[in-house]
């Protein structure tokens, strides 16, 4: 009984993996691909791994560790990628209508230029 529940849980998780793959192909730029990829793989891997743990209770402890690890680290890597992508937003043609981060960068760059201290503001392209 447990094995059947686990197998169906894994099936739902695998559907979210498929969804992240479709999202990576359909979305127009790197930020939106990240939106689809990070969220769908997080829930997908939670369900897929817990499903495996339900099918084979010996593995349950390790799959729980893996799930906690993925939930903690997946947003971190997506955040690092988003910061990197923001530096290339003009190259990759990302359309963002209010871009508060670019405005803040311009403001600090202006302040540094007015200051005349010669220090370059970080991450200005």
């Amino acid at each position: 009984m447990m094995a059947i529940i686990g197998a169906f849980t894994s099936l739902v998780g695998a559907l979210f993996f498929l969804l992240s793959g479709i999202g990576l192909i359909r979305m127009p730029d790197a930020f939106n691909r990240m939106q689809a990829g990070t969220k769908a793989t997080t829930l997908g891997s939670i369900l897929f791994l817990i499903g495996i743990g339900l099918q084979e209770p010996d593995y349950l402890g390790r799959t729980i560790i893996l799930v906690v690890f993925i939930v903690l680290t997946n947003p971190v890597s997506s955040n690092a990628l988003a910061r990197a992508a923001h530096g290339y937003r003009k190259h990759i043609g990302a359309k963002m209508v209010p871009d508060a981060l670019a405005e803040a960068n311009e403001k600090t760059a202006d302040a540094a230029a007015k200051d005349g201290s010669g220090k370059e503001a970080a991450h200005v392209d």
């Binding site: 197998a7 894994s10 559907l15 969804l19 992240s20």
Partner: peptide
């Protein structure tokens, strides 16, 4: 069911 799930994950 689990084989089908794995096949879908491979497709992703």
């Amino acid at each position: 069911v689990f084989s089908i799930a794995t096949a879908i994950a491979v497709l992703g």
